[in-house]
Amino acid sequence: MRLMVVGASRGLGRAFIEGLCASGDSVVGVSRARPNDLSVPDSVRLDWIESDLAAPLEAAVQIEQQAPPELDVLIYNLGIWEEAAFTDEYKFLDDSDESIVAMVNINITATILLLKRLIPKLLGSTNPKLILTGSTSGLRQSGRPEVTFGASKFSLTGIGDALRESFRDDGLAVTCLQLGYLNTEDGLSVPLDEAALRGDGQLVPVHDVVNVVKTLLNLSGASYVRELVLPAICDERF
C-alpha cells in the first residue's frame, strides 16, 4: 500500500502513520515539521514533506512536487479551530477577522487546492481511496456553536460528495469520517483499555479511529463507506 497522510505530525494523524502500515508498505507524512520519534516497522518506508498549508497555494504546489507519482490511499486529516472552541468561553463575535480568514484558508481553500493536485496520483491505483476526517461539528443540528469550524467541516462533506461524483467512473472511494471529541493525549503506545477510560465516555480513542480506517482499507473496489459517524458513547448530542 502507498499511503499519504496530510496533517500527520501528532494526534490522530500520527496514529494513522504508526497504525495503518504493514510490512512492505510506504507512507508519506505531511505537516509543518516532521516529528523525530515516530514508531513504524523497519520494513515500512517512511518519507516526509514539510509544508505549511497556512499559505494554501504555495504549499499545494510544494507538496505536489514532492509527493510520489502514485498513491493508493490519501487521508486528509488537516483542520484548525477557534482559539476558544469547545469551551464555555467561545463567542463567535469575539473571533477576529484574521483568525476567520486563516481558518477558511487552511480548512477549505488549502483542502481544495491540494486535493486537486493529489487526486490524479490516486487514479492509477486498482483500488484508490480518499478518506476525509470531518467532525460531528459539521453535521446538521450538531449542537455546537463554533461558526467557522462548523462551516469548514460542513464544507468538507460537500467536497467529498462532489469528488465522489467527479471520479465515480475512476473507482475512487471517498469516505467522510465524522468524528466526535477525540482522546489525542493517548497514542497507540497506550493500551486501548487504558485510553478508553480517559474522558469518562466523552472521548473517542484514536485507536478506534485507526481500527475503523483499517476496515475501510480492506474493502474491495466493489464497495465503499460513504460516511461514518463516530461519536463517543456518552456524547448526548448523538
Rank of each mutant, 00 (worst) to 15 (best):
I159C: 06
N127P: 06
A110E: 00
L122F: 11
K153I: 03
L122I: 14
G124A: 15
G143W: 08
I119H: 10
P128Q: 11
K129A: 12
L156S: 01
T126H: 13
Q141P: 00
N127K: 14
S142N: 15
P120T: 12
G150Q: 00
A151F: 01
G150P: 00
F154P: 00
I159W: 07
A110V: 05
K121M: 12
I119E: 09
I159T: 13
G160M: 02
P120G: 14
S137W: 08
S152A: 11
S137R: 01
L118F: 05
G138F: 02
I159Y: 08
L156M: 14
T111A: 13
K121A: 14
S142F: 04
S125Q: 13
R140H: 10
T136Q: 07
S152R: 02
L139P: 00
T126R: 15
S137N: 11
T126V: 14
R144G: 05
L118D: 03
A110C: 07
A151L: 12
G134Q: 04
I159S: 05
E146Q: 15
F154W: 12
S152N: 02
T157I: 14
R117A: 12
Q141D: 14
K129I: 05
S142I: 07
T111I: 00
K153W: 04
F154Y: 12
G143Y: 08
S135K: 08
K121R: 15
S155F: 09
L163R: 07
P145G: 07
S125H: 10
K116I: 01
A162P: 02
K116T: 12
K129F: 05
K121D: 12
I112T: 07
G124N: 15
L115Q: 04
L113S: 00
G138Y: 03
S125F: 11
A162K: 10
S135A: 14
A110I: 03
N127D: 13
F149A: 03
S135G: 02
P120M: 13
L122K: 10
A151P: 01
R144T: 13
F154I: 01
G124M: 09
N127I: 06
A151D: 02
P128L: 11
I159K: 06
L163S: 01
L130N: 04
G150E: 07
G160Y: 02
I119V: 15
A162N: 14
L132K: 04
T126A: 15
F149M: 08
L123Q: 12
T111L: 14
L122T: 10
T111G: 00
G158Y: 04
G124I: 04
L115K: 05
G143E: 09
N127C: 15
T136Y: 02
L115W: 08
K153T: 06
T148Y: 00
G134M: 08
G160W: 03
L118K: 05
